[in-house]
Design a protein around this nucleic acid. Sequence first.
DNA 1: GCTCTATTTCAACGCGCGTTGAAAAAACTG
DNA 2: CAGTTTTTTCAACGCGCGTTGAAATAGAGC
Lengths: 204, 204
Amino acid sequence: MNASSHQTEPKRRGRRAGGEDTKAALLAAAREVFVERGYEGATVRSIAARAGVDAAMVNHWFGGKEGLFAKAVLQLPIDPNALVERLLDGPDEKIGERIVRTFLTVWDPIGGGPFAAMVRSVTSHEQVADVLRGFFVQTLLKRIVGHLDSPDGDLRATLVASQIIGMGMVRYVVRFEPLASADADTLVKAIAPNLQRYLTGDIG
Amino acid sequence: MNASSHQTEPKRRGRRAGGEDTKAALLAAAREVFVERGYEGATVRSIAARAGVDAAMVNHWFGGKEGLFAKAVLQLPIDPNALVERLLDGPDEKIGERIVRTFLTVWDPIGGGPFAAMVRSVTSHEQVADVLRGFFVQTLLKRIVGHLDSPDGDLRATLVASQIIGMGMVRYVVRFEPLASADADTLVKAIAPNLQRYLTGDIG
DNA sequence: GCTCTATTTCAACGCGCGTTGAAAAAACTG
DNA sequence: CAGTTTTTTCAACGCGCGTTGAAATAGAGC
């Protein structure tokens, strides 16, 4: 191997060539890694490595890990409006069923890792908990409650949240069988009626 | 202050006087701190400090942090048998109510910290998840299922677990209002019927 | 009372984390 | 093309973690 080997050329310094956007690359990597590993599990170094960039760039462009997180969550590839539309589209008597099925459709393909990561982030980092609480409460629960306009709407919404989050915990995090491996239809039949009661039944 | 001041006497080395049991002190401190802060949050140094002992003793007596955890969880001050007795003592039609009320009675005084700590430990440390899964499944769920001996008992038990865990998540961890601040009676009226359906109703 | 051994503290190690400042290199400016 | 600015890498810092080995001290055995 002569001196001009292309093998492990120690990365050139200075501004990159072409239109490569380091900031965008970091945001894209951050969205992935934060979802995969949660806030704590996602190290600045791992995000930078996935973006093909030095870890110091996180500080230069976002002022630190928290700044990157704050910017990254604003660009998550989820469309809350579409989600709410999907839940509310159909007869009110079957909202419970649509909630269970939609939740499973979104999370089952992703698997337990991201869900556990999200839970861990919420339990350990107050800033993350605030961001996610704001998203769930403002964007999802309030709108569903508003559509149904039944009395005690807020309590009903949080009851639904409790059952859905609990299903996620048992299925993806602690993995109690047989719920963890049950197919979607079984869970819909078992859980949907309870959600339906929370939303439109007598809870007092 | 003369040289023989009792103030900050730099701890004497060597074997302690009297019957002071370092091992037991460490176990007691570990039980407290693990519950308060979870596995990751509980540092070896903090446990040793509470026990009034050097951190190195953890390695000497338990071979490390994991060993201490393994021994400590076996001595948690909870009596599973008494808990199961309490849940099963009474008419079967009111089991749901007793489950909700017992859960709230146990956790409300403790507060959200320990519950969040437990959840974080489960999501981040596989060994901890295994230990707790074993406890819940073997000790609690199986016995309740056995008592009721209805078909699909295991599925029913995990469904109940999902609702209870979800209630804990919403009440203690993410704190969605108004569920987070609702009084016990309100939650019993809202949730108990759903548990009752899971246990003795038609879920197919 | 002397020796041996068990117990405990202390100081340090190695690791990974987020962060920082200086140096290098490309791009921009006139 | 020369000088300036922007972007990037690199090397290092400080922190806290779990862990380790040596030194110091108390009790046990003879």
